[in-house]
Computed example of a mutant assay.
Amino acid sequence: MLRCEGPFARPGQKIGLLGGSFDPAHDGHVHITRAALTRFGLDRVWWLVSPGNPLKKRGPAPMHDRLIAARAAMQHPRVEVTDIEARLGMRYTAQTIAALQDRYVGVRFVWLMGADNLAQFHLWQDWQTIMARVPVGVLARPGDRISARMSKAARMYPEARLIGRQAALLGDMEAPAWSFVNLPMNQSSSTAIRNAGGWGAGAVVDRQPPR
């Protein structure tokens, strides 16, 4: 097994990476994580609680608080909440993926995102490098299905898309490969929780932010 300043993994395992500030984590994150395990045929999912989101002006709550809340919200034997990005000194997804692939040789990583992020994916630093390095699993969130399907990323990689039952093969595919799956809607939002004062006062229950 491999351990590189983070979770254990075995060569050959298919591991989904769900990155974000998780400020705070909520049942929407849990919803798409459980779906990703089954819909994309993953062995495990790691939540990458980021040090901060480069595309947001407002800084997140302290890492310690976000990790505690995330671990309380996401309790599943095949899901691990980790601060490996902070440990590796990474803030951008492309850098994080490259670092993980270097350290976990033989592990098959899949980047996970909400459909809202696919609509903005072309704004991420080195986003085409991400597409070239790992398969990408996209999970529908409220109100973003049409914009995601019409996004620049979707239009640039039409032949790399896995449709229907092909989604279960995502972890076995060589990049570029991506799949978009529709899920029952979950309206939970970190922004709404913060605006309602439910975060910072002991609550454990944002969409995944652009990275």
Rank of each mutant, 00 (worst) to 15 (best):
R3D: 07
E5L: 14
G6D: 04
P7A: 05
G16W: 01
L18E: 00
S21K: 03
P24W: 05
D27I: 15
H29V: 14
T33E: 08
A35Y: 08
A36G: 10
L37K: 10
L37D: 07
T38G: 03
F40N: 03
F40R: 06
G41S: 04
R44D: 05
V45T: 09
P51Q: 04
G52C: 09
G52D: 07
L55N: 05
G59V: 07
R66F: 04
I68D: 03
A70H: 05
R71L: 07
R71F: 07
A72I: 11
Q75C: 10
Q75E: 14
H76R: 03
H76K: 01
H76I: 06
R78F: 12
R78W: 11
R78N: 14
E80V: 14
V81L: 02
T82W: 03
D83Q: 12
I84R: 02
E85H: 09
R87G: 13
R87A: 12
L88W: 10
M90T: 12
R91Y: 02
A94W: 11
Q95E: 13
I97G: 04
I97F: 04
A98Y: 02
A99F: 01
D102N: 10
R103H: 08
V105I: 15
V105M: 01
G106F: 04
V110M: 10
L112M: 09
G114K: 10
G114D: 09
A115E: 03
L118G: 09
D126N: 14
Q128W: 07
Q128K: 13
I130P: 04
I130Q: 00
I130G: 03
R133M: 15
V134P: 03
P135A: 11
G137Q: 00
L139Y: 07
D144L: 08
S151H: 05
S151L: 07
S151Y: 09
K152I: 15
A154M: 09
Y157L: 13
G164D: 00
R165H: 12
R165T: 14
A167W: 08
D172P: 02
P176H: 02
W178Y: 08
F180D: 01
V181D: 05
L183F: 09
P184I: 04
Q187G: 02
S189W: 04
S190A: 14
S190T: 14
S190N: 04
T191L: 07
A192K: 07
I193T: 10
R194F: 11
A196I: 01
G197T: 12
W199A: 12
W199T: 10
G200D: 01
A201W: 12
A201Y: 15
G202L: 08
A203C: 11
V205D: 14
V205M: 11
R207C: 13
P210H: 01
